[in-house]
Structure formats: C-alpha cells, structure tokens
Measured scan of single mutants.
Amino acid sequence: HNLTITQGKLFFHYNPKLCLSEIHKMEEVSGTKGRQERNDIALKTNGDQASCENELLKFSYIRTSFDKILLRWEPYWPPDFRDLLGFMLFYKEAPYQNVTEFDGQDACGSNSWTVVDIDPPLRSNDPKSQNHPGWLMRGLKPWTQYAIFVKTLVTFSDERRTYGAKSDIIYVQTDATNPSVPLDPISVSNSSSQIILKWKPPSDPNGNITHYLVFWERQAEDSELFELDYCLKGLKLPSRTWSPPFESEDSQKHNQSEYEDSAGECCSCPKTDSQILKELEESSFRKTFEDYLHNVVFVPRKTSSGTGAEDPRPSRKRRSLGDVGNVTVAVPTVAAFPNTSSTSVPTSPEEHRPFEKVVNKESLVISGLRHFTGYRIELQACNQDTPEERCSVAAYVSARTMPEAKADDIVGPVTHEIFENNVVHLMWQEPKEPNGLIVLYEVSYRRYGDEELHLCVSRKHFALERGCRLRGLSPGNYSVRIRATSLAGNGSWTEPTYFYVTDYLDVPSNIA
C-alpha cells in the first residue's frame, strides 16, 4: 500500500525493539523526510534493546553428524571492536523451508527459537588472519532439518551509529543413524509349514526405512522333555500350542467401542483428552525405555581390526524358502538304536541362519518350516543398504507352526516275539517326523474274553527296548493296539495285532 503524509511529521519514542533503520525507511515511504526535528525521533529510546544489523554474515563451514552440527561463519568486528559482546545463534526444527525470524513471537518477546549466546573469538592483530567464530550444536535429532541463523550482539553506541551483522536463515539436516526397533511384532501360524509375521514401523526411523531383515531359527525343545518319565503317576503330560491366527481386521481397528449394538453396526467412541494424553505418555515412556535398553543392555560386537582377528559373527547367506525346513542338525536320541526319531534339535552355532529381506511392506510369510516346531524370529529395521547396512537392534518374537495331521501315527506293522515265561516283546517304529517329539506310547492289549488293559511306555523305555515287553501273560489269544502321544496330543491307534500265548508248562520236552 502507498502511504503519503502531505502535512505533519513523524514522532517515535520509547520503541526499544524498533531499529532506527526501520524508522528511516518509514520517513522515505511516507514522504516526511526532512520535516522531523532532532528530538522527534529519539536516538536513545528507539532500538536500544534490539540488534540492528546492516551487514550480512556468511557461514564459512558446515559439518553434520547424526546428532551434531558444527558451524563456522566469517569474522565480524565493528569499528570499535570492544562493542562486540558476542553472537546469538538461533535454531529450531523446520520440516519445511518457510521459516521466518519472527515465527511464534508474542507480545512478551518470546519466540519459538532456541538461542545460544556465543563469546567472540580472540581478536588477531592481523586483519587478514582473524579467527572464524563458530559453535557445535549438540543433542539434535537424527535425520531432522533445522533452520539456523546467527547475528551479532553489540553494545549501545553513544554516537548512535547503527552497526551489526546478521546471516540469512539456512537449512541444515542432520545425518541418518540406526533406527529404533520395529514396533509390535506379531507372529502367527496359518499352516503346519508357515508363519505369518506382521509389525509396525519404528517410532524413530532416523532416516528413510529402506528394508527390513527377518531372521528365523528353529528352537530346540526343553531338555526336561527328553529326561522326564511322563508315565509316572502324578506327572502331567506336557503340551505345546501353536500360535493362533490373526483376529479379523475389524476387531483390530483402534479407537473402536468394545460393545456392539445388537441391531447392527455401531460407531466408534472418540477417545477423551485424558485417554489420548495417557497414550502419549505411555508411548514416550516406551521410547525412553527402549533407548535405555539399547544403550545399557546391548553391547556392540567388536569388529575385526587390522591384526587379522576374525569377526566372530557368522556370515549372512541367503537361502531359498524351500530350504528352511531342514535348518537344524538332527541327532538321534540314543545312538545305539537307529530307529528312534531325530527330534532332539541342538543347533550348531556355526550354522548360517536363513533370512529374508523385506522391502516396502511390514509383513512376511515364512514358508518351508517344520510342522509343530518353535521358531525364534528376529526382526531388524534398516535405513541404508549400501555401502553397508545400517540397521536397528533386533526385536524378537516366537511362534510355533501348526501340527501336521497323521504325523504322530505309527507307520509300519507292530511285530512281536514270544519268549519263555510268557513274555512277549512288542516292537514298532517311532514316527519319523512327529509333531514336536514323542513323549510316550500307549499300549492297549486284551486277552479274548477279558477286559482291555493299558500300559504306558516312556520315551526312554522305548529307546532301550525298541518297544516294550509284556510279562506274566496268561495263555490265550491276544490283540494289541499302540498309539503315540506327542507334544500336540495323541496320534491314531494302530491296526490290531494278534498273537497267541501258550502255557509254557505244557511245552513238550526233548528229553527222552
């Protein structure tokens, strides 16, 4: 807008934040220059609390790290170098490059900038070799853009010569660093050979998330399962459950009422301010606690030095998902009996873990797994792929695949051998790939016309006998059925096997 004052003059007093240069501009645009008398524009009460600059400061050096910015700028000295009290560095987070010096300023003089007072450097006698002032900004957020400017702080001049310097606002972004852990990993099994893994992005990506790394490792069953005799009275049979499938998407929606109208769909109840505040506090606490764990609990591995020492970490090797089922080394339970199943799973520490690289999504279907087997899954978020990966501390989750139908069934015939004193040795093959492992066998036998009897055969007993022995049988026709019990439950009964026990007292003698 054009402003013209045809008559009258300007009068400025007691404006401590208004620089004289701005008042002189007002004289020019209003056409009143030359009308004012000496005392109409006070030299001592206008701009006496402001830094009124008329020179431009330029930054000469900028260096960044993930949490620091090192700045240096060209030296500046007023005509009387004693008038320079120091520099004021202003900075704040700036997602967009549209910041002005006066953003967030209120009537009390406060604003949204963080201000650092910096002492002037030592003055050199040689004007050509003056030290460049600077400042190291610490405690910054990774991968965050900051708006920065600097200006001088000078003393009051009796001659009211307006001098000083100020830089333009520059924008500097800190470097990326390792992201925080992925949030809320959930693993479920939808079949006997697959596990579905879902997660949420890290709360602090500290860069642009480029991919996720998912490692999985087959877990050995508890050692007590191999040692305890679950045929003993009072000892509860062990059981394991597989990871249940995901709930429906509708039930997972946030901010939804727990109660549904019987007449149909209901609208979600909005969260109160107290609920939102509580969630923010919980989120802040979780982030602080995660940072504490990362800094205190997890110790970084030592990389190899120039002395030739090897990095103890196993090298990563990509495998196809079809090879995942046989990740671990199978060892027989008892070496003397080769027909026992290889369900003991000690994992070799030198073995390469299978892994998958996930790009542009937060889910993965891990296939080719062994049925009813526990897996430990390790999830890392990465925001750099080359020249070397920059990934987060791992988040861990466990899951067990679903049982395989008929995996616990005894394959092959049940054979028998009759000894003296009416002892019958029953023999059968253990299931080759049971659900988890076989903890015991149930032997059901009966003599024709009598009630059915049951015998429990422990895992250890089966390994020693290759089956079991029935003792003290009365003469007669017998039928026997056997079924295995694994961590997933009972298998199917075998087809009945028949044998006849004679009275050993009636056996004919070869003595003449």
Rank of each mutant, 00 (worst) to 15 (best):
A488Q: 06
P300H: 12
C267Y: 13
P238Q: 12
K432S: 14
L426S: 02
R471A: 14
I366V: 11
S492Y: 01
V393G: 03
I377D: 00
S257Q: 06
H371I: 12
Y375G: 01
Q252R: 11
R459P: 05
H211L: 10
K317E: 13
E224T: 06
E388F: 08
R447H: 05
V297L: 08
T373K: 14
V443N: 00
R313C: 14
V424L: 12
F372R: 05
G467K: 08
T343S: 07
M402D: 06
E362G: 03
A463H: 08
S492E: 11
E260F: 08
R316V: 04
N295R: 09
L473K: 01
E452R: 06
E420V: 05
K357G: 05
S284P: 05
L455D: 05
A399H: 13
Y445I: 01
E420Y: 11
I209Y: 03
N339R: 12
H454P: 05
Q275T: 11
A263M: 12
G449W: 05
T494D: 01
N383C: 11
P314Q: 03
T386R: 14
E221S: 14
H425Y: 09
A309M: 06
Y504K: 13
T340K: 13
V331F: 12
L487Q: 11
F289W: 10
I377N: 01
S262H: 07
D291P: 07
R353N: 14
P387Q: 10
Y504W: 09
E281T: 09
D503W: 10
F462P: 01
E265K: 09
E442Y: 15
S305I: 07
Q256S: 06
Y448E: 02
T303V: 06
P312F: 08
S315W: 11
Y396T: 14
S239N: 08
S458Q: 04
S342P: 08
R376K: 12
D273L: 08
P475V: 09
D222T: 05
P475T: 10
K287D: 07
W242V: 13
G374N: 13
Y259R: 08
Q252D: 15
R483S: 03
Y259L: 04
S458Y: 08
G264M: 12
F337L: 08
R218D: 03
I482V: 15
P403Q: 05
R301P: 10
V331R: 12
F337E: 09
E221T: 06
A381E: 02
A399I: 11
E247V: 13
Y230M: 05
V329S: 09
V397Y: 10
L293R: 12
Y504M: 04
L225N: 09
A309T: 03
S341D: 04
S284R: 07
L235K: 06
G234Y: 05
V214W: 00
T288K: 15
T347V: 04
H461W: 13
M427A: 09
A399Y: 06
K253V: 02
S320C: 08
G368R: 10
G207H: 02
N383Y: 02
